[in-house]
Design a protein around this nucleic acid. Structure first.
Lengths: 119, 119
DNA sequence: GGCGTACTACGATGAGTATCGTACGAGCGT
DNA sequence: ACGCTCGTACGATACTCATCGTAGTACGCC
């Protein structure tokens, strides 16, 4: 059934397993904050290569994994690509308003620091 | 003027120097989240020793320093004690709603995980 | 089948950090 | 002055993490 240890099936924490500390830690990195902000703006599933990040591909993989394992995003393989989506509903149920205020804060800070391209 | 390098005067970041990543990182630790939750509930200046934390005194000092240097709390010496206060106004101006949703999330999670004493 | 693209795995590295114990310093109360 | 309490400093340790480069795998397309 390929359910055992299929490398093409990615492990995600169930909603109840998501921990606030893990989410905050995942969001406490500039690169990951940027990824999440962009995903929130797009509101569609985006491939990893969509993002133009100031790090190499291996590092990008690492950051996406952190986001997935902390429960912030969901990742599924679609052929050769890997589509990413925010777990908005799960996060809103667990921590109402949290994601939005973090995203607003990120926007506000980017504007304040004069990095509007970082959004 | 005792402004030079007085060990009794603690360095705090100015409001404009507070970075979202730093705040989120400071809050992404269970011990520190607990400290901040308790401070928000008390709404008064609390000494470090007020908190009953599952770590030693040196580790406690470390966590308070992280909170101070990230801009989450303010610390002042008052005789032999060191009083701690949340920098609510600064945080609310910079990141409206953020602190409250994190605190709500912490409360919700504590309730969900059955640690009501952690609040 | 063979090529190119998208992403991963692995190992390395350098920086950060959570933790502790012990020893120390600064005030307060008596 | 003396001791007590509160908190710090410093060194050690073990762990985590952000980053990279290289090599590899999986899939779609020609």
């Amino acid at each position: 059934m390929t359910t055992a240890t299929n490398p093409r099936v990615l492990d995600h924490p169930a909603r109840e397993e998501i921990r606030l500390e893990g989410v905050l830690h995942a969001l406490s990195d500039a690169v990951r904050l940027r990824i999440v902000s962009e995903m929130a703006r797009a509101d569609t599933e985006l491939s990893c290569s969509f993002f133009d990040l100031p790090v190499t591909k291996s590092t990008t993989t690492h950051h996406f994994r952190v986001l997935r394992e902390s429960g912030v995003i969901q990742q599924i393989y679609r052929g050769t690509a890997k589509l990413n989506a925010l777990r908005r509903e799960d996060l809103d149920v667990l921590f109402p308003g949290l994601l939005d205020s973090v995203l607003d804060a990120a926007t506000a800070q980017a504007r304040r620091l004069g990095n509007p391209d970082t959004l």
